[in-house]
Write a protein that binds this DNA or RNA. Sequence first.
DNA 1: AAGCCGGGGAA
DNA 2: TTCCCAGGCTT
Length: 364
Amino acid sequence: MTDMPAPRLAAEVFQQRLLDWFDRYGRHDLPWQSPRSAYRVWVSEIMLQQTQVATVIAYFERFMARFPTLEALAEAPQDEVLHLWTGLGYYARARNLHKAAQVALEAHNGELPTDSVEGLMALPGIGRSTAGAIIAQSTGRRAAILDGNVKRSLTRLHAVAGWPGKPAVERKLWALADYYTPDSRVADYTQAMMDFGATLCKRSTPLCGHCPFNDVCLAYAQGETKRYPESKPKKPLPTRETIMLMLYDPDGRVWLEQRPASGLWGGLWSLPQFDSQSQLASWLDDHVLGPERLPPLACFQHTFSHFRLAITPQPVSCDRLKGVREGGVWYDPSQPAELGLAAPVKSLINQLTPFTLTSTPGHA
DNA sequence: AAGCCGGGGAA
DNA sequence: TTCCCAGGCTT
């Protein structure tokens, strides 16, 4: 009772052709490939979710320098983990990674439970494909993956219609992915599938002339590689507006508040946000002594996957806060604490340098 | 099944 | 500009 489309090649033939291609043209020098450990493979797989290899490499190196072992990660404060994730996006990945390290330390003797896909999937942030990748790459046992590269390659090879995000399409692709997965050289095979999708069966302008499967690829035979995979049905992005308060004290420190633990920018430190100038004025009135508005910065837009945020930065200088506020810190840009910052917040703070501030009236 | 969750590379 | 990337979680 399988949902699987007819394979284009016997599994053994597919594997042989792919591994021959990989031995010549695959990537064999990625930082998480040597030294290879379950921990390093795991961290790389999480960072690589929805993120390109070229972007990840520098983050991975910094992360490994600071957290060389699972135990080091588990015992670190979350702020430090988010700090090293700043700019990478999808911050739930970092929170889940941190939490999973703590679970592994307490419940699995500090090791990842790589015995089974189900065991790994029980950890936060690890789904079926990531679990398969970790097992294949770190243990060499048979496990299938289905990432964006594999989805793209398989939809073309088999001319699978429909957006791969649809569960019915995804089921077919999982069946194919599992069918082609070999019993031996699984780590190489998994890496080969990802390399093949990333460097040959690319999203645009795939290199079909050099493809080891161009004699059996249905999309190529139809001259319709462009049509696969079908794209996600698109909807217009809604726009939200916000005012970001850049409140500076006489020492040039800026006031940051921590976001709620989950949701957008969860756990990151950000500038206070307001829906209107009157709300901003009211907040200043309630909490700030001696506020003076500074020359405004240019408005700009920050685009998320599901909406667009129109940001109006409002610099304000002050003497101090009235009383103490929980969940906030005075952040010194010249001696930055190791906190996670949302990308546009980091950009704004770096943009408004200490020199800019001290050259404005109202201080010193 | 659909929405939520970032940021950047590439065309 | 537009698309989407080594996806997973929540509702």
